[in-house]
């Protein structure tokens, strides 16, 4: 584990994550013929929130104060593990892709409890929906991961990074992963990141009682989670240009292609958000169930089509 690489990786994640969200918002505005806020706006928001006073419910316990740090820390740890610019990410030795999914679950668990801690009923509403969706995302995600892991016989993140080859299984897995990405980043048609309307919100409901610095950390953490998921998607399915050794030249190529891939994935997400309407809550399980079936189909196709 190279300490310089680790620090560089963390700084990259911290800096790029809000920017990615800005790009998505800006392009979404573009698709919708709006001008929209600048791409740096998420950065300004975080900066502002970190300096603001926070208001805490009088019924909240220490859990409410601790949760943002767990949420932020777990997502940043995941960002250190996921291959971004380099195949062998600095923290890949900590664990494999199952550990990465586990870290995301830990963050969700902490936030869900914090949402119930304030005695406000919006938190419960958000928790209830977010956790129901999350439990349905898990099987789809694992089936897609297994369809990638069975051919290489490994769940290690470095081993899962593909060679860019196209197979039926990989195509189907890509479909599953994209649905998972939409659901996990809380985007339309599963959830809406831009609303606090109680009829539709899931993730935002859990953040509702937060304000000031904890809210800033939670927003930053959410952006990092989005970055982790899109980076994983990029590394697993579009590994072109990713650096296989830490030399300056390949790192530069890796960095450029990485940012380009992130931008394109962000555009794709914005396009999906613009061209779809938010689903009714109990239609979402159909989508996620279909994703699971697609994942099973991906595994079957390994044997039927032969890779």
């Amino acid at each position: 584990m190279n300490l310089t690489l680790l620090l560089a990786n963390l700084v990259l994640a911290l800096a790029v994550a809000p920017l990615l969200n800005g790009v998505i918002k800006k392009s979404k505005a573009g698709w919708q013929n709006r001008c929209g806020p600048g791409v740096l706006q998420p950065w300004f928001d975080i900066w502002k929130y970190l300096g603001r006073e926070s208001v805490v419910s009088e019924h909240a316990s220490w859990l409410f104060r601790l949760a943002p740090y767990v949420y932020f820390g777990a997502h940043l740890a995941a960002a250190g593990m996921v291959p971004m610019v380099l195949v062998g990410s600095p923290l890949a030795g900590m664990g494999d892709v199952i550990v990465l999914v586990g870290l995301l679950a830990l963050a969700r668990f902490a936030l869900a409890l914090a949402a119930l801690d304030t005695a406000s009923n919006f938190g419960g509403m958000g928790t209830s929906r977010e956790l129901a969706f999350a439990s349905l995302v898990e099987p789809a995600l694992f089936l897609a991961l297994f369809s990638l892991a069975i051919p290489v016989g490994s769940t290690a993140l470095g081993a899962l990074v593909g060679d860019g080859g196209v197979t039926v299984a990989r195509l189907l897995a890509l479909g599953v992963f994209f649905i998972v990405a939409v659901a996990e980043t809380g985007r339309i048609p599963v959830d809406n990141p831009d609303t606090h309307l109680e009829l539709t919100m899931a993730h935002e409901g859990m953040l509702l009682e937060y304000s000031g610095r904890p809210l800033g950390l939670l927003l930053w953490g959410t952006h990092i989670k989005q970055l982790v998921i899109l980076s994983l998607l990029a590394a697993l399915f579009f590994p072109w240009g990713i650096a296989s050794d830490p030399s300056a030249a390949s790192l530069a190529v890796g960095m450029l292609t990485y940012l380009a891939k992130l931008g394109l994935l962000g555009l794709a997400l914005a396009l999906v958000e613009t061209t779809n309407v938010k689903m009714r809550i109990f239609r979402v399980p159909d989508l996620l169930g279909a994703a699971s079936l697609l994942g099973l189909l991906a595994i079957t196709s390994i044997y039927v089509v032969g890779g």
Partner: peptide, 12 residues
Amino acid sequence: PLTAPSRGGNLA
């Protein structure tokens, strides 16, 4: 942390 194995996964 160890270097990831070629088969299976790793966890520290």
